[in-house]
Amino acid sequence: MNVFRLAGDLTHLLSLVVLLLKIVATKSCRGVSAKTQELYAIVFVTRYLDLLFSFVSLYNSVMKVVFLGSAFSIVYFMRYHKVVRHTYDRELDTFRSSFLVAGSMVLALLINSKYTFFEVLWTFSIYLEAVAILPQLVMLQRTGNIDNLTGNYVFLLGMYRGLYILNWIYRYSTERRYWQMIVWVSGIIQTALYADFFYYYLKCWNENRTLVIP
């Protein structure tokens, strides 16, 4: 554990708190992509199956349970809550997320480091996480004025990925046997997807106006 990894995890946690706060406090999920949230739920389930048979640290296990719980809470609110579900902009959330799931599964079957059930599912979760933000990014472009909490949620998610890259650089330069090419390549692609959003987020923040993605 290093400071970049810890900061990354805490930023990830904070992003989920911000999103849940927006949904619970404003009783609205306007501008939030249910497809992205469902993809994250799939990512966490397939990656954290190892909760059942492998233990790394109490920190890891607690975080895994928290991430799973928050992902399912968000999906529950967006799909089933009697008030919140009516605020979901279905017609703006049209990305075909099933293609992302299928593509990630095919890639995980082709490129993995060990051809076992759990390893392939874990690899699938890495590939799917890399692209899971796409429905949300497309939806932001279609939504007019993006509210602060939604913008901050996506910004924090992008920060979390950036901090993970710093964590990998740190680990690579300090640990003797540290090599995880699948995670690195997927993570760099995932972070690159935020570049456009970051540009407009910082530009609007600098000019002190509401976030709009052209």
Partner: peptide, 10 residues
């Protein structure tokens, strides 16, 4: 390298 990766990150 085809060594299975340690899954020690989240």
């Amino acid at each position: 390298k085809d060594v299975p990766q340690d899954h020690d990150e989240l």
